[in-house]
Structures are given as structure tokens and as C-alpha cells.
Amino acid sequence: MNYAQAISAFAQVLNHEDDTDQPPAASGLHFAHRMRHYRANCRLNRIAALQATFSTVEQLLGADFFRAMAREYVDSIPATSANLHEMGGEFPGFIAQFAPAAALPYLPDVAQLDWARWQAWLAPDAPELAADQLAFVASDDFASYRLQLHPAMQLVASASWPIADILAMHAGGPSANLDAGGQKIMISRYQWQTVSDGQWAFFSALQQRSSVGDALEQALAVDEHTDINQALLWLFQQQLVCAADRSGTVCEDTPPPHA
């Protein structure tokens, strides 16, 4: 048996997923009945990773229900990364199809929120562009700039459920009224906040590298009263702007003339 054959035989027994059966006699493995410890380790490591990532979902369901659901997930969806921190991208979709959780129809959207917060937490570092570094830009020109937003910034929308109120409730806030309708949230590295439909459209357009002017236009098309000043203030206050550029000139590397 060569190296590749031995690895392949081990993987076959590991994937066999039947802890009671005798493994295939020709596997070339000693003590193959102990393969269940590897299955258990893989499963428990992944479940623990899901617990860390989807903490709001776990709070809503309780630890036992969550573990049972997470086990179904890890048993039905093979891991696609060696890094356990990347575990769970398909979990919100899985929850939406998971019949025992159907009594909590907002759960998939809450899971999406947990996942987005996790992505914000894990995102790589990026440079910060302070608002005063743009001071030299004439206000008429600003609309033609495109902003490079921080990789930690995440946008999450629920069409039907008050996900911001649910999240606030789990951080010790007042009880959420589930009939309050859908909510939209912007997430930065360490904060999150509810945003209006227009602001959400503005941020989405900026994330897709629209110019400030085009993003503004899209926001006002959604709601002509959109508070764009507040949206821009949030971006700079939360250090979410990494660079600004126009026709390929990156502002981050260009010192203001008065500096």
C-alpha cells in the first residue's frame, strides 16, 4: 500500500459514518474501531466553532436544541476549510430548511446577522482614511469620488423581521416586538446599528464601488428624505473608509496640500 492508497483507505473508513459497524477488513488499519474518536473530534470541533459564531441563534434556541441542529448541519454539509473560523457560511440557509426550527421563522435572518458580525470580527485590517484627509476635496468634486470601504463593513437586511430589535434584546435591551416588520443593519468591526432603507441603499452602492454621487442618487430614489450626512458621519466615525479615489488616484497616498 503506498501513501496515497493509505490516505484514501483511512478517509473511506472515516467517511463510513457508522460507529457500530466493523470497518472494512481490507482497510489496512489497526484499531480501526477507534475511528469513531476522529469522527467525534471532527464533529465536536465544528459544533464548537458554530457555537462561537452563532451566539444569538444559540441564545434563542438554548444550548441543547442548538447542538442538535448543529450536529445535523455538520453531518450533512462537509467542511470546506481547515480553518474552523470559516465554518458556517451555509448555516443560515440550512436553518431555513430545518423543519424542527420552523416555529422560529426569523431564525435564518438572525443567523445571517450572526454570520455577518463574525465576518466583521475576522476581516483583515485595512488603512483608515480620516475625514480631514479629504478636506482639500472641493465639495462639488466629492460626488465624483469612489470610497474604498473597510472589509469589516457588513450590511444585513431582513425583509420581515426586526433583527436589530432581536439583537438588542439579546444584548440586554427591551423585548423585541416581532410584528415590527423588517429591519436593516450596518455592521462595523465592533459596532452595529439600524439604518434606514435609503442609507442601506447608499452603503450598498458604495460597497459596489459606485461614486458618492451615484450612491446618493440611488439612496434618494429609495427615499428622498434619506439622511446622507448621518450616513457619511457614521462611515468616518467608525473608521470604515480606507481610501478615496477618482480616475484611479488613490487619496490615501496623497497628502493634503496643506499638510
Binding site: Y3, P78, S81, M87
Partner: peptide, 12 residues
Amino acid sequence: RYFNDLLPVPRV
């Protein structure tokens, strides 16, 4: 498929 554990290397 990834296995999130440290699987032993076959010394063959």
C-alpha cells in the same frame, strides 16, 4: 472535503 482534526500520517 476537510476533516477538522489532526489525522495521523501513514508511514508507508
